[in-house]
Design a protein around this nucleic acid. Structure first.
Lengths: 335, 335
DNA sequence: CTGTTAGCGCATTCAC
DNA sequence: GTGAATGCGCTAACAG
């Protein structure tokens, strides 16, 4: 059916190897024969079989990405960065969306068992120690995004600093009763994924630095989602001494807080200041003050690190991207 | 390094074919030998080379998806449906995000040229006639999502009916000056992608059915985006006789309309009713009345159709999923 | 039931 | 520079 390298060789009256060399732009071909081969290729409408090529090379020119919750806007933005950088280099991106623990484990197992990808990108999700050794043994290069793990290259941010930034901003505005809403302390899905915890750490450190008391009742944890955060925020706002400001570990959760404020007819920022994290697309629309992190860039940079690994380089150290406070309406000065 | 099927055969003292049969769960193997082979496979920590398997089979167990604008929430939701259905069948999903025309063309060309995917899914993006024949010649099965094209299977919705639904709702609320904001009439990126146009058609039909005049000044088109829609909406609201209701061809654009209303201090829905389209995640948060379409299901169903094609079935006819009006705050009765 | 054989399409040695 | 030979790891068709 489709023409093969052999057909081209026969018609062009040259050897197999020569056609292969032309394909790979080898300099070991005279201009004349190259032209002839090229002409025959065009004539026969030959196109090389990628899958045979992969087989012979032992490479797939594909990298797999495992990410929890496609739908999370921050993850999507990272994927955008990954896709753009990958396809710019002729690589393909295969994606796995894990929304349950079983899938998480299965995807990781599959990734090491299979050789269908040359490298692996893990978004907001760290391998367990046993998974890490499996990865190493399978010689499957991995780069982490938005997480850290002993000895594995990755690109993340300083979540502690980010939490500190957000909280000191609220303190500077005169708030003294500042609450925190974040993810559950442990989550089997995103093993060792400490973003939320670190942001809380930054929150606590900022309070301590300002000699403000740490009120455990002001620290709430729930599944990452608007609805869950809304419930938690409502609880906070019903406290005998409710917070005047809430720092949420993500913009999604901050949206839940805004909903709660609306439920209780609390004007924002007058009665309640709100700060989120990530600066997802919608944050600007909502006028949400937030801590911006370079999402697209994190994906792009991770791919670059992976390419380094694929080229045989030693595992580069983990990198940190900068964060930045973006002040908007939900935390305007008002007191 | 890694054990191959040959090693297993040697150690187990059987032939190559037998090992292969065990791998493929062929019934033509005695229980005894199967056990033995299985044991040796475990002992040698053998795992089959997918890439060699693909090569021998001439299949990749991979389907490619080309979609414009990952970041569009409706597209992401469709991708979720695609991914879930695909990986449930052991297929891999490789994604291409096209945000520019050149990339669009290149991706499609690459898809037919390469044999790196067994099938192709096109989201919100129809092949041009020449591309369609190239697809056919390459024997690359395609399923369209959110679009239609002559003779190609696809899953979409009745956009005209959706536009009609939204507009009649506004008419029933007593509105008589109803404007429309949609995508540009032609877009090289999403060739033949008529969603927005069809929704406008439904809008026009609903107006005509109610004997309401069609005011060309009330029909605006701009690039699909919040900001662009915001500008258009502002123009509309500055008209000598501004509309009292705006139907936007997507929720994203409806958000722009809401922003414009906020800019002009127009209370919604009292001074301006707004209806969107898609019912993306954020719509509920915004209290946005919208036309819901089954986004996740559209992806899932498209994959099912593609599987049909891959199994050698004749191209199934295009399918339409139902739409449904979801009334929320932005179009509450108020007059 | 099982072992053997012949490719799948290409890259990569080698000789010439 | 170029052609011929070998093998990547597996499936499938064949003979036993």
């Amino acid at each position: 059916m489709a023409a093969t390298i052999r057909d081209v060789a026969r018609v062009a009256g040259v050897g197999l190897g020569t056609v292969s060399r032309v394909l790979n732009n080898s300099p070991l071909v005279s201009a004349a024969t190259r032209q002839r081969v090229l002409a025959v290729m065009a004539e026969l409408r030959y196109n090389p079989s990628q899958i045979a090529r992969n087989f012979a090379l032992g490479k797939t020119l594909t990298v797999a990405t495992i990410a929890p919750f496609f739908t999370r806007p921050s993850v999507v933005e990272r994927l955008r960065g990954i896709e753009a950088t990958l396809t710019a280099s002729g690589y393909h991106l295969v994606v796995f969306n894990v929304e349950a623990v079983e899938r998480r484990d299965e995807c990781l197992r599959e990734a090491v068992r299979n050789d269908r990808a040359d490298g692996l990108l893990l978004v907001s999700l760290a391998p367990r120690p046993d998974e890490a050794v499996a990865l190493r043994e399978a010689h499957l290069p991995v780069v982490l995004i938005d997480t850290c793990a002993e000895g594995l290259p990755g690109v993340s941010i300083d979540d502690v600093a980010g939490g500190h930034l957000a909280t000191s901003h609220l303190i500077a505005l005169g708030h003294r009763r500042i609450a925190f809403i974040g993810d559950p302390e442990t989550d089997p899905l995103t093993f060792n994924f400490t973003s939320s915890r670190d942001r809380m750490l930054g929150y606590q450190q900022a309070l301590a630095a300002a000699k403000l008391p740490l009120n455990p009742a002001y620290e709430r944890h729930g599944l990452h989602g608007r609805y869950e955060a809304r419930v938690l925020a409502r609880e906070l706002l019903h406290l005998p001494e409710p917070p005047t400001a809430i720092f949420a570990a993500s913009d999604t959760q901050a949206m839940g807080v805004l909903e709660a404020a609306r439920d209780l007819h609390l004007p924002v920022p007058e009665a309640l200041a709100v700060v989120g994290f990530d600066d997802i697309d919608i944050a600007e629309y909502l006028g949400l003050t937030t801590v911006r992190q370079p999402l697209f860039e994190s994906g792009a940079r991770a791919v670059e690190l992976l390419f380094l690994l694929l080229s045989g380089a030693a595992p580069p150290p983990a990198e940190r991207l900068p964060v930045e406070l973006v002040v908007r309406r939900t935390s305007m000065k008002n007191r």
